[in-house]
Design a binder for these strands. Structure first.
Length: 292
DNA sequence: TTATTCGGAAATTAAAAACA
DNA sequence: GTTTTTAATTTCCGAATAAT
């Protein structure tokens, strides 16, 4: 923060990075491919354009990239919850504790989470897959919100069920190829992504049944039901799919998602909630006509 | 020898938590 | 409200490697 200007030059902005899109991967053909940022060298020249490095390399020099936002995202209590969870696991292993829910409630083993079914790496690749392939046609969830839910899933059953449902949806609907090195149990590597998706769907449904989510619906629970609906359609279990669609629509109604005033304070999510609500509304309409 | 690459330390920044 | 802490991104040092 306090750079001594008499002895050290202040850090300047390096000429262009790969892309302006925050989540994209570097693309070798981008004009910024040989920039100081890419080369990890000091951008020489008092903010001049072109900078001296680009001049000597005979390259175009631009400063078009929009920097990403810095700083923590989502809850910061990640480390603390990780420590708590480690301690809990150790005590569980030693047989000192009954299995507790991540919301602090005691869980019967019927509703406890399955261990090792969904490693963090797999969550990340499912999210990547979702936002590069599925999201374009159904932008119902903001990437940053999804990332926050993924971080919170350790301690929030609601976030856990939504993320597991999202992963199941990706695997069932798109038949995403699961990289085998991401699977913590070697025996899982043998099964198809459809089967793994089915297992994840059942896990999410089972764990959610241990909560009273119906009494306090949220955007997350609506999304979870929506993903269940998509999963069951993918599995050709249409009647179950319709039930979850109606559940999602009812929760959305209870939440007041039809009234944009209720979520105008959340600019990050407003368009996603709008899309989700209208998607549910139209699907419900379609369902009513189809069954009448 | 000089040029280039890239691991990672240090600097920077902003959000969350703690405090008054 | 302000301050502190934490966690994220960005810059670019300097060792390793490649090219001449």
């Amino acid at each position: 923060m306090s750079s001594n200007s008499t002895t050290t030059a202040p850090v300047k902005r390096a000429c262009d990075r790969y892309e302006t899109c925050s989540t994209s991967h570097p693309h070798p053909t981008d004009s910024g491919d040989h920039s100081c940022h890419r080369r990890k060298v000091k951008c020489i020249g008092e903010g001049t354009n072109p900078c001296k490095n680009c001049v000597s390399a005979g390259l175009a020099c631009t400063y078009n990239a929009i920097p990403q936002k810095k700083g923590p995202k989502g809850s910061r209590a990640k480390v603390l919850s990780e420590l708590r969870e480690n301690q809990r696991s150790a005590q569980l292993a030693a047989g000192f504790l009954p299995d507790m829910g991540f919301d602090g409630r005691a869980l019967s083993s019927t509703f406890a989470r399955a261990q090792g079914l969904l490693p963090a790496g797999l969550v990340d690749s499912c999210l990547d897959f979702f936002f590069t392939n599925v999201y374009l046609s159904t932008p119902v969830l903001h990437r940053q919100k999804a990332q926050e839910a993924a971080v919170n899933m350790e301690r929030s059953t609601e976030a856990y069920c939504m993320i597991v449902a999202l992963c199941a949806y990706v695997m069932i609907q798109t038949n995403m190829k699961v990289p085998t090195q991401m699977l913590s149990r070697p025996e899982i590597a043998q099964v198809s992504s459809m089967t793994l998706g089915h297992a994840l769907l059942e896990e999410s449904v089972r764990v959610r049944n241990g909560t009273d989510f119906r009494e306090s619906p949220t955007h997350t629970t609506v999304l979870t039901s929506w993903f269940y609906c998509g999963c069951y359609f993918g599995l050709a279990r249409e009647n179950t799919a319709w039930v979850y669609l109606r559940e999602a629509a009812t929760q959305a109604q209870l939440l007041g998602m039809h009234d944009e005033e209720t979520y105008k304070h959340d600019p990050l999510d407003i368009s996603r909630k709008r899309v989700l609500y209208w998607l549910l509304f139209m699907a419900e309409r379609f369902a009513t006509r189809g069954h009448s």
